[in-house]
Each structure stands twice: as structure tokens, then as C-alpha cells.
Simulated assay, not measured.
Amino acid sequence: MKNIDFYFDFGSPYSYMACHRLLQICKNTEAQITWKPMLLGGVFKATGNHSPMVIPAKARYCMIDLQRWSKLWHIPMQMNPYFPINTLQLMRLITAIHLYQPDSFPQAIQTIFHAMFGEPRNLNDEAEFETLAKELGLDKREVMTWLSDEQVKTQLKDVTEEAVARGIFGAPTCFYQDEIYWGVDSLHFLESAID
């Protein structure tokens, strides 16, 4: 089995790009993705790393770089004007869907990423978050229950700690056959390894 472990956070624009590219790679190679939603803020705290967006020169470069990848891979991408967005609820939501509605998970991933960087919306806004949940076919009361569900919290925490233990310091990060691939520029090497 060709399996890719994909660690991501919805707050990472490079995770958005990687998600789209990995789906293309899987289509070409018959590989499968094991989705690993994690809290990037928790990874940063544990490793002493920081978002590139907090370093002005690096942030400016990232805006150019993301557009280059967007054009190369034909992946529509817009930086979210409401960035940074606190993704804790989004990451709990996708973890809950992974646990309780796994059949809905692949579409939910793409829908949420699209709302972040495809056609960006203010997902910090409670009303916008509720609208997104409706678009995912979820009941508001169910979602609110999930966001405080101890099993969901524990799962998200465990995957974040697992990421740190595996040497992850940022997102997106993939593993294939126990080899680490960080960032979208490493996906070429990942695809070559799978081939």
C-alpha cells in the first residue's frame, strides 16, 4: 500500500496548496492519504518555530511564492484577507468529522480549505463559521457538541503531539515510508519516491 501521512492545519496556505497537489499525486500514483489534522500553533510552541507571516520580509516573499505554485499547479489561490484566523474550532470540527462522519471527511477538507484560500471568508466570524457548518450538512447543535467533545479534543492533541514526536516543525508535512517531506517544494521528491 502506498500511503502518505499528511499533517496539516487549515491556517496554513501552503497546506491548502499541498492538499490539492497531494490529491493530484494520489490520482497519478494510486497512493492514499492518511489525513492528520494537527494544531500548527501547538507544533510551533513545542519546537520554538514561528509562522513565516510574522516576519515581514518572509511574509512578502510567501505571497509571491504562493502565486508561483498556484500558477504552476493550476490551483486557484487567494490569501485570506482576514488572516490570521484562529483555526482551533476548524481543526476540532474536521477532527470530529474524521471520527464521527468519516464518509464526509474528504469533501469537508476541500470545502473548508476552499473557504480559507479558494474563495476566502472570515472564519473568525461566528456567523460565517455556522454558515460553513450548514454547507457541510451539519446541525448547529451537533457541531457545538463536537467542539467541546473530550474525545475530539484528545484526538487533536494526540495527533499534534505525535507530529512533534516525529520531528515535525511546520505545515504541511508528509511522511512516506517513514521519510519526512516538509513544504510544497518537497512534494516533487515525494512523488518521485512513490513512483
Rank of each mutant, 00 (worst) to 15 (best):
L132R: 02
L132N: 00
L132K: 02
A133W: 00
A133L: 01
A133M: 02
K134Q: 04
K134D: 01
K134C: 05
E135M: 14
L136N: 01
L136K: 01
L136A: 00
L136P: 01
L136G: 01
L136W: 01
L136M: 03
G137I: 04
G137W: 02
G137A: 05
L138S: 11
D139L: 03
D139Y: 00
D139F: 02
D139W: 00
D139T: 07
D139H: 05
D139G: 01
D139K: 07
K140E: 04
K140V: 14
K140T: 09
K140F: 03
K140A: 12
R141L: 10
R141C: 10
E142L: 14
V143H: 01
V143T: 06
V143W: 03
M144L: 13
M144R: 12
T145G: 06
T145Q: 14
W146M: 12
W146R: 08
L147F: 03
L147R: 09
L147T: 06
S148K: 15
S148F: 07
D149R: 07
D149Q: 10
D149V: 12
D149P: 00
D149S: 12
D149A: 14
D149L: 13
E150D: 10
E150T: 08
Q151T: 08
V152F: 15
V152M: 06
K153F: 06
K153P: 00
K153Q: 06
T154I: 06
T154H: 07
T154R: 08
Q155D: 04
Q155P: 08
Q155K: 10
Q155R: 09
L156Q: 04
L156E: 03
L156D: 03
L156T: 02
L156P: 01
L156R: 07
K157L: 13
K157W: 07
K157F: 08
D158M: 11
D158L: 11
V159E: 06
V159W: 08
V159Y: 10
T160I: 11
T160C: 05
T160S: 11
T160E: 06
T160L: 04
E161H: 11
E161K: 00
E162D: 09
E162K: 04
E162I: 00
E162Q: 15
E162N: 02
A163Q: 07
A163I: 13
A163M: 08
A163F: 11
A163Y: 09
V164D: 12
V164R: 02
V164M: 02
A165G: 15
A165W: 12
A165S: 12
A165L: 11
R166E: 09
R166V: 03
G167W: 15
G167Q: 09
G167I: 15
I168F: 13
I168K: 13
I168H: 09
F169D: 09
F169R: 04
F169I: 15
F169Q: 05
G170S: 15
G170D: 12
G170R: 14
G170T: 15
G170P: 07
G170I: 14
G170Y: 09
A171D: 14
A171I: 13
A171H: 09
A171F: 10
P172G: 04
P172L: 08
P172I: 07
P172S: 08
P172Y: 03
P172R: 11
T173M: 10
T173E: 10
C174N: 14
C174I: 12
C174E: 10
F175Y: 05
F175H: 06
F175R: 04
F175V: 05
F175T: 04
